[in-house]
Structures are given as structure tokens and as C-alpha cells.
């Protein structure tokens, strides 16, 4: 069964009616180090932008700036577009380490962002809906510690979808998982994103994930991070195969671009650790 089947989740608006994210001249420094510099990017409504780059290039920082969790030193992020009435948090995060509250059951974790907005019954209906969608119905009462990493990130995405977001910011959502789980979840998340119709920024350091999930791939340089290339993948996301030679060629091209940067970045990190 693919999660992409079934009716669309209500607030995602396909056909270019969702949110458009525009980054203008974003720059950021941290402890005297220039982390990001002169970044201009646009994510079209309902599209997925995959953001790749060598370790330490500031991908996650850039995502934090887009989500309003980090104040940029320069530039501005704008969002424009219509948002459905039942959207409780237009720009919503999915975290690398899941960020689940260990003292809340799966159900209560998913309910958390709804609590300030919805009465109990409405909350329960929405939670049940996203739990079913993510295949968590049987685990609703489980504690997070009882779940595998993959199941925990399913809770993370269920919680994000529960607020009916217009934009999803996904920060290496699969990097804490093993390779097999990553493959399975990538399929599933691609379907869920498509069905939600959200504008999505997907940060990853795994190039195969980027070419599999993105309408566009933004390739960043090593620190100070800039957008080195913006590649469009003209192929419907639904039906992309890992073995597709065009995608493999794209992956090789990106790797060629960042290989030297990645090697330098790795050495720099060792230097920094000394």
C-alpha cells in the first residue's frame, strides 16, 4: 500500500496555490565563522527542494532560518501564498532526532501541537487520522522508547502532518536510521508529502535521497555555504526508481561537484576538533 493513495490532505494546495518560499541574500555567522553567504533561493508552491552539501556547509542552519528558529545575520525569508483555515502551523519542522517527548505516548506526542488550538474531540479525530495515515494506529498508546527509530520518525511526520502544514522543513529526517529503514521510509514520506501537497525543503547528505525526492536539488558549497548549483529533475516523483540510470547519472554529477569540498570539509572538521 502506498501512502500516496487516497484523498489529498486538506491544506496542501496543489496547482501552485500553496506557499512560495523566497530566500534573499541570506548570510549567517556563528562564533566569528561565516557559515552562510549570499543565499538566494525560491521554492515553488507544492514543490520539494532537496538541499545537499558537504558536512558543515550550513544546510541545517539554513533550514533553521527558514523555520524562524535561527535569526539570520543578513537577508530575509519570505513566504507568500494562501493557507487553508484548518492549518494550525503553516511552516512545520520534521527533526533529525525526532524530538519526541519521552513522557508522552505516541498519541499524546502527535496531539501536542494541536492542544492550544483544538478541543479534545477534534484533536482526537485528527490524531487518529494521521496515525492511520502513517501506519501507527496499533502503536498509539506506546511510549517512544518502545519504538524503533523508523517508527519514531513516523511519529515525527505524523505530528507534523497533524497541524496540516503548508510547508514542511525536513532536517535529515532519515539520517538516524539504518539503510534499509531509510529506503522504506523515503518511499513512504515521498508519498505523504505528495498527498499533503506541501511546499517542502528536504535537507539530506545522502545524494540518492535527494534525487529520489526532490523536484529540484540545491547543491551547496563548503563553508561559507553558498548555493553552487540548482538542478531540476524533470521526472514525476511518483514512480522514480533507485535504479533509474538518469537519476544515477544526476547523483554522480552532484558528487563530482561536492567531492573536493566534502574532503576539505572533513579535514577542516578534524582541524577544528584539535
Amino acid at each position: 500500500m502506498s501512502a500516496a493513495q487516497g484523498p489529498p490532505l486538506s491544506s496542501g494546495m496543489s496547482g501552485g496555490q500553496g506557499l512560495r518560499l523566497t530566500l534573499r541574500g541570506i548570510g549567517h555567522a556563528y562564533r566569528g565563522l561565516q557559515v552562510l553567504q549570499d543565499i538566494d533561493l525560491t521554492v515553488a508552491p507544492g514543490e520539494v527542494l532537496a538541499l545537499v552539501g558537504p558536512s558543515g556547509c550550513g544546510k541545517s542552519t539554513l533550514l533553521g532560518i527558514m523555520g524562524g528558529l535561527i535569526a539570520p545575520a543578513a537577508g530575509v525569508v519570505e513566504a507568500h501564498g494562501a493557507v487553508a483555515d484548518d492549518c494550525l502551523n503553516p511552516i512545520t519542522y520534521v527533526f533529525q532526532d525526532f524530538a519526541l517527548l519521552p513522557w508522552r505516548s505516541v498519541r499524546d506526542n502527535v496531539a501536542l501541537p494541536l492542544e492550544p488550538h483544538l478541543p479534545r474531540a477534534a484533536r482526537r479525530a485528527r490524531v487518529d487520522e494521521v496515525l492511520a495515515l502513517t501506519g501507527l494506529d496499533a502503536f498509539a498508546e506506546a511510549w517512544p522508547r518502545e519504538l524503533s527509530g523508523g517508527m519514531r520518525q513516523r511519529v515525527g511526520i505524523a505530528r507534523a502532518l497533524a497541524v496540516r502544514p503548508a510547508c514542511l522543513l525536513m532536517d535529515e529526517p532519515l539520517s538516524a536510521l539504518d539503510a534499509q529503514t531509510r529506503t522504506l521510509l523515503l518511499e513512504e514520506f515521498a508519498g505523504l508529502i505528495a498527498r499533503a501537497g506541501t511546499t517542502t525543503v528536504y535537507v539530506t547528505h545522502t545524494l540518492s535521497e535527494a534525487v529520489r525526492i526532490g523536484h529540484e536539488v540545491a547543491v551547496m558549497s563548503r563553508r561559507p555555504g553558498r548555493v553552487r548549483a540548482l538542478l531540476r529533475i524533470d521526472r514525476p516523483i511518483e514512480g522514480r526508481r533507485a535504479t533509474d540510470p538518469d537519476l544515477l547519472a544526476m547523483e554522480a554529477r552532484i558528487w563530482a561537484m561536492i567531492r573536493d569540498d566534502a574532503a576539505t570539509a572533513e579535514r577542516e572538521r578534524v582541524d577544528a576538533a584539535d
Binding site: G67, L69, L88, N89, T92, Y93, F95, D97, A99, L101, L112, P113, E115, P116, R159, V163
Partner: peptide
């Protein structure tokens, strides 16, 4: 801190 950032990322009010 990640859990607190999560709460902020969902726009939860401070008291919450």
C-alpha cells in the same frame, strides 16, 4: 534544547 525548539517550531505559546 531540541525539545524546546520543537515546541517553538510548532508555534506553541511560552506557557505551553
Amino acid at each position: 534544547r531540541g525539545l524546546i525548539r520543537m515546541g517553538q517550531g510548532f508555534g506553541l505559546p511560552t506557557w505551553k
